[in-house]
Amino acid sequence: MTTTTAPAAETAATKPLPRQPWNRHLLAIAVLTVLLIPLPLILPPAQASVAVRVLIFALMSIGWNMMSGFGGMFSFGHAAYFGIGAYAGGYLLVEHDVSPWIGMLVGMAVAAAFATLIGFLALRYKLRGAYFALATFAFAEMLRLWATNSEFVNRAVGYHVPLRPESSWWWLQFEPSSANYFWIALGLTVIALVVSVQFVRSRAGQFAKAARDDEDAAAAVGIPVMRYKLLTMALSAAITAVAGAFYVQYFLFIDPDLAFGSSVSIQAILPAVIGGVATIWGPVIGAVVMGPLNDVTATILRNPPPALEFLQGRGGLDVIVYGVLLIIIVLLLPQGIYGALRKRWSRR
């Protein structure tokens, strides 16, 4: 029983454990928040509304990234949760005179419940990869058709948020150019970011990542895989629902296509993919790229320059631009902008 390469038990406690990045992330979030607070006071109103748009994209995608990035379950149907958030807020406000804040909470709860149901069915029947993504898409489409045809939510007409004579925090309504919209969106986004940092460092987040990497191995070390996958989905859905609930209050209007359309699902996916899937900052960076693009394409369609006059009044340019952008990103930066930057930093 002689061995030359004895297991190196002696050197055990000598090496200090590596530091973890969580507190650095939280610090970065805090610094960024403080820097961004004066932004709407500096920006002209048109740009300030682009900034709000960016934050809505970020919120949607932070939610998507939790399930599809950290959880590894690719969703092509986050419009379902965005729409549930939007419709819960709109419905409760218009039909029952309930504050949008409460509507937001209800939307989060309903979206989480719906995600758990979809997730249970999809996992129960062992849908993977493209089949899983298609199932999520199908459920979002189901909701769109239901909303379009159901008297309960005003069919295809949707909801107009009634205008109030005075600004009110309780009713989440201010003058159109008010900086409050930006601050609220910023606050919600910051909360979502902090939640995602805390999630990834938590027991649940670590289990979800393990289950993403190898489901059987995760089960073998004792992780109840199904439970943590469903938890991840519910949390993801709740965050995206917040974006929907805020969207209605900001744009004062929702209909089935704006809420549940497949372009909404794409808007939840793209920021994370552009910025970096399964990274804390990816969705935020991607949203900063996508928000202005969205605005530019909308402007071009409204007032095209002479060379592009044929575009006047047409839709869909934004989707084409997203498509091109996606191809470029996938080819040049397969890990997204943040992923590529991080790689470069760590190589130094």
Binding site: P18, K209, A210, R212, D213, D214, D216, A217, A218, A278
Partner: peptide
Amino acid sequence: MRPFYSMT
């Protein structure tokens, strides 16, 4: 071998 590939 089936490590969790994204982890150390």
